[in-house]
Design a protein around this nucleic acid. Structure first.
Lengths: 195, 195, 195, 195
DNA sequence: AATGAATGAGACTTCATTCAT
DNA sequence: AATGAATGAAGTCTCATTCAT
């Protein structure tokens, strides 16, 4: 007999998978229910609405993400080490919450317009502050190049990490840590051979 | 009986803008019509269906993209120069077809399942062949690092370029060529200061 | 297997209150259960259906009402005294069954169409016979005015009494008997000062 | 070819009729559409929602009602004449808007809780002020009896008039003015023969 | 070229009801 | 007696699409 919170969790995972695969709008509540082996109406015993399912998926993910990030940011590491830790943590989150990350990527921009999803905007601002700040510290400390537009660099690093969610499959040949290592190597040192 | 091509073009541009901002599924035909200053039904004088609007936006974009790419690929450049030319050309396309690129990014994966959009799959395959091939040539020629997983590198470079469409605004402070130059600098040489 | 009659009675009272406040159709079985401190499904241990709850509320009320009315009608009073007694009895019923009366007022018309609630029609016919008959006797006996349309008078007196259920609150400053006295005074003698 | 406002008006009248007959909640949007000879979805070309149909029915009715009432109240009549004019005006409104009045009677109490229908509360307050005030003036001027509870009298007169909507059928044997005359006669002078 | 009105399929949601525990 | 979870029918609403004008 599965107790209630476990069932909710299962349903959320199922829903996240479907949202990620088809897009939130293109996903019907019936599709989720089918996947969960129940009727569409039955979902409403567990959740208020389709939107609240989405909400719970995203907020749960962001809560966990920030737990990891905050720990890193509080550790007092140097700029380069901070970037390395954040990227590694990010790939771990992608590993754990692949579906949620994919949804976040695809939907957050237009969801952010809604009152209910205001926390997406907040999160994105904290995000920017953390990364951009670290990069700036690194430039000041002459760890990162100063000849690049810093905002461009920020976007480059940020995108570089998160787009991975669109093709990443948990249980593939590379562990999240290995992918992080290679990504960091490219981002930090480039793909060209040094001459 | 054939409606004026100029009007069609305007309507396609309007539709692309709305699709990019809200997502294809979340965009109603009425929203497009509103934006174009007409009623929803009137769009059907110009187009067969909502889907055919999307189709025309994407295929027009890809046609132009491949015109540029094919020219680059036919020029007989070295691997590094080819990558540089492809990236630059890509940013030019983003500049010209920002909305179409954004739509492509968000929707191509699930559209590709439909017969009608089979060309998206073809294009993506040609794409992979061009980039991956160039990277392999580069590794062989000892221009690019050989210690990295080549598919990871491919995804890294590819995504890194195209996600830019999600934040790029034509007419901003950097020209597409300038952005390309900085991106290339990061991708090729990394963001870390050389020691 | 028969649940306790006391619990049934409480639940019926609770349900009646909610039906009266929100209307039968607008009342969900869950709302009743909430009010009773149980879950919706649990009501079905006590009752067959939502409709049977309504049925029991109304039929219980009408049974009691007719007990009182029949006593009055059997007492062999004169027409004026009969009207006085019926009105007084009516206000006593409103005092005892306020919710049921309010429901009856609002829902009886369309419920009457259903087989199950045929007794509402019967009751209404007996009702009309009792009141209209008494009024006619009164006109014949020159106790009531003969210059008025008798059906209009009937409706006037009937409605005037029962609508009171919509604002009456048990335990207010006037007893049912006092309200009956004032109503009768208005109905019989009018509100204008005699000249 | 019926121009748009006329069509709206027809649909509103149809909807009002159905709402009055079956109750707002028990009325399905499909029933209204059937009655209007269209499909359920088609109603949404003309109206935002089922609720907005109800809103428009009620507010249109109240607007017209208050136009009539305000004229009466501004005429500077004595208390008895004011009551007579208000009652007559009320029966005229019942004649014109029978369905709307019936809906108002049945639904206004619980609708009033919603923000959107706040005007029902306002109207009801103006209503009370107009009638109660007139009655008080009449008592002071010794035109109405002073031995009755004035609020009871107010409810008596108010209910007396409006419940008529529940049985009134336009085009019956009595004109609204004739019904008003008889009601006023009962209310003012009572139904008992004077001795 | 465009409007106004409607269609019809299908979406999300509600809710009375059932039933194993 | 009551819970927790689910069913299934039905309800409101949305939206791409059609078509006479």
């Amino acid at each position: 007999m599965t107790p209630s919170p476990a069932r909710r969790g299962e349903l959320l995972a199922t829903a996240a998978e479907v949202f990620a695969a088809q897009g939130y709008n293109a996903t019907t509540v019936r599709k989720i229910a089918d996947e969960a082996g129940m009727l569409a109406g039955s979902l409403y015993y567990h959740f208020d609405s389709k939107e609240s399912i989405l909400d719970e998926i995203l907020s749960t993910f962001l809560d966990e993400l920030w737990q990891g990030y905050d720990e890193v940011l509080a550790a007092g590491l140097g700029p380069r080490e901070t970037i390395e830790a954040l990227v590694t943590e990010s790939f771990r989150e992608i590993d754990r919450h692949r579906a949620a990350v994919a949804i976040y990527q695809k939907e957050s921009r237009h969801l952010a317009k809604q009152e209910r999803f205001a926390y997406l905007v907040e999160s994105q601002q904290k995000f920017e502050k953390a990364w951009l700040g670290t990069l700036e510290r690194g430039v000041a400390a002459q760890v990162f190049r100063s000849d690049l537009d810093i905002r461009l660099t920020y976007r480059f690093v940020r995108d570089t990490v998160w787009v991975a969610a669109s093709w990443y499959r948990p249980g593939g040949q590379h562990s999240p840590e290995e992918i992080a290592r290679q990504y960091l190597s490219m981002v930090l040192d480039g793909i060209a051979v040094r001459t």
